[in-house]
Amino acid sequence: MNTRIEIANLQKRYGRKVVIQDMDLILESGKVYGLLGPNGQGKTTLIKCIAGLLTPEKGQILINGEMRETRHKGMISMLADKDLFYKWMTVQDTINFYDTFFEDFDRADSEELIRFMELVPQEKVEKLSKGMKARLKLVLVLSRKAKIYLLDEPLSGIDPVSREKIVETILDRIREDAIMVISSHMVHAIESLLDEVILLSNGKIIAKEEAEVIRSEKGISIDDFYLEVFRHA
């Protein structure tokens, strides 16, 4: 029942530029990982590799011991920075899409979340503000009872009220048999969510530590830890 992701010797290039170099990483069930680092350091790339939207040049990604393939997508729920919707879709259309194509989608849960996030089902997606779009994306991603949640910058550019609702919703859905990976700049906003933090710099993991250990051994917040690491990186 528990989920496990094993990444070994991962390398990902864009043309000549190597974005992820020789990365080894193990992600364990029931944990919330914070993937932190400045822009362009490989956070999104790593997430997309796990999700199967990118194919690495070298290395492998194992999900529960199996080579990553198409059917694993049914276990992975990803929130991307890019907008996911077609112009003609309403909020309801997006829900129907997820309901149709993902077996683990919980329709009742989504309806409750839609209400909580104050979204209107008939509203056209393109008319939503940035904050409302972010809320919708989160509703869709978290209404799935997936085994792996990949949230790429779920709070980026979001107003404080939306942020709070989003954090609360994420918190409520942390499960023992699932893995959550959240990449964010807004370290402060997600501090209380994180079990472990992984700091990426130039496609390499320069730090991987339990949040509470950082706090007890260094007496600083994850936010400050981030600053400390990247000031010298």
Binding site: K31, V32, I174, L194, D195, E212
Partner: peptide, 14 residues
């Protein structure tokens, strides 16, 4: 408790 304190359930476990 995780909901009340708004923290990760693992923290409560700990």
């Amino acid at each position: 408790l995780a909901i009340d304190y708004k923290v990760n359930p693992n923290t409560i476990q700990r």
